[in-house]
Design a protein around this nucleic acid. Structure first.
Lengths: 195, 195, 195, 195
DNA sequence: TATGAATGAGCGTTCATTCAT
DNA sequence: TATGAATGAACGCTCATTCAT
């Protein structure tokens, strides 16, 4: 007999998430204020904290959802068959994750899962990323190295993705853009090893 | 006749750094408060900001110094000739950089240099790391891959080092320890590619 | 045919009172939260407010009931014939009323009756106290002052009782305990005046 | 060399107290909001809490100061020589202390000193009250009872003062006003006892 | 009656940073 | 240089109470 109330709960939660998304689309993630969110959602402040432990939880939901959307789009496309294609495919995701310094900070903080039980959106998305990369890496008609298992290969791609993203905020070594750098890394990483 | 005042300045700066180091040795980096530092150093709060642009600058000095100390020790040792030895050599550094979540956050933020002119301790240390890795990678009597230049090879090692460190804070994928994971990465990364 | 629903109502009310009493016996009155009460009673929060106008009403019931119990016990004993005996007799009551600062606050707030119609437990108990004191004061075989009527005499005893209780929470003037202070007051107050 | 800064501190504190007093003179004590005070004082919220631990501390200062002012006035007048005169003299004080239910609550809470060191304004004023009452009670040309010491006599007067005040908020027993009730109590309490 | 999500107004806190002296 | 009071913009939180279902 718990269905009816859950519905209202979900509605309120949606109102909060929608309001936040609207505000972000105008001013960006960094500028988001809890006060504005509840105001726009037409909801009491106490209600906000009944739905999200703190502001970061809300960010986790919003950023995670956006990452999922981008990942969905990536998955909907063709499977990339070489290093450059993978770099190309990952680019939108990398671009979003580095759209604001604050966003990357949040992602790095919550990509890591402090408590196993509650896997939050961002952490779950990272898991998806690895899985997708594994699939790509284990596709048969590629020239990727085969000496290590797809899992390790995927982790490596991910490591290079993060490295490339981090360097986006770096004043040094900025000659290369995100795309070019990622290509370079992946070409080197995915190249088949000597027999 | 600018030595006397400089001397006093350096003393105050030293007092602040010592006080901070003392407090950190007790409570860790995360818990450090500017208030406590000036209290322990016996100077006014304003004085702190006459010496350090902000709190992060102090952290940069302290953490960078510690990283330099560890790096000195690493350099003093023998040049590692294979992937596992490199992993082993880097371990103390990785261990320190992940001693606290906050420390890794600071390092990641300042490894990247927002203003080219002022290269701060942590960023400079990262530069040293890359250089040392390049030297190791270009040592002749190794079986590392030769198809890419030492710079890219070193960057890759570094990317994997960071990845391994980030995963230390992750509740998921925690079967492997820092050492084992790093070994695995470097073995794969440094293996010679097919001709 | 209104008995059946009344029965359920009384059961729910009893569940709430029992749950509250249980929680109080562990954590005291001050720490009691409505949330905990309904949780322990296994009812919804709204149900609580269907039975008690507000939290203070519940407190009024619980504290008033305890005061009644103590007063019953006092009445069951012998009638005190002198100031010291009255002080002694009142001691258990005073002790309870000052068991927590919060309890005394509630008692003082509700001993006073804002609305004449609904005399709540605590106010009713205060009425009983005055009545009992009047009886004691008008007992013939005592040496209490006879120049003022028993009502005023009783009010005075009560005023001194409150004063003695209030001073229990006072860091200053704490040499004397509750008992000794009350004795002193009552001896002075009940002494016969000059002709 | 700590005088100059103290001066600024005192000015800010005065600004806060003045702003609060102004607001109270318009809307009363109950309605005072910290937010309004800092706004009117032209001071940051953080500053408020650097001067007062919490809102109650501010109230303690303000109410205590007012009580002191009234007490000063009382002391400036002639020494009352009989019960009715004492009641009359105390009336302004009693009137202020019961001007709002909230004010009496604060007074009762802080008349009592939880920590000996820091005696706050209200508690200090209560001390003064007792002292003044003692002086009155020990004046030679009065007909007050002499069998108990002035201290106890003063405490009794005070107890009756509080009782009379508490009854002001009581719907029951409200026939008598504050003045008449206090007179009645003090006449009875101060009457000389039988030899 | 019972439910429990939502309310809501205000308090207290944080603490790096600024600035007038 | 040194001082330290003042800043300030949110955030988090409290928790008794209400109200639509």
């Amino acid at each position: 007999m718990t269905r009816a109330p859950q519905k209202r709960t979900m509605q309120t939660r949606a109102k909060l998430l929608d309001a936040a998304a609207d505000l972000i689309s105008v001013n960006g993630y960094t500028a988001l204020r809890v006060e504005e969110v509840v105001l726009k959602a037409g909801v009491a402040k106490g209600t906000f904290f009944a739905h999200f432990a703190d502001k970061d939880q809300l960010m986790n939901q919003l950023i995670g959802a956006e990452m999922d959307r981008i990942l969905d789009h990536i998955v909907a496309g063709p499977v990339p068959k070489d290093a450059d294609s993978i770099a190309e495919a990952l680019l939108p995701l990398a671009e979003f994750m580095t759209c604001e310094r604050y966003v990357l900070d949040i992602i790095l903080r919550y990509s890591v899962v402090p408590e196993i039980e509650q896997i939050e959106p961002i952490a779950r998305n990272f898991g998806r990323q690895i899985e997708i990369l594994m699939n790509w890496c284990s596709t048969s008609d590629t020239s990727f190295r085969k000496d290590i298992d797809a899992g390790l290969l995927a982790e490596g791609v991910h490591a290079f993705l993060l490295q490339a993203m981090a360097l986006k905020f770096c004043a040094l070594h900025c000659e290369l853009g995100l795309r070019e750098r990622l290509r370079q890394y992946l070409r080197a990483w995915l190249a088949p090893v000597a027999a």
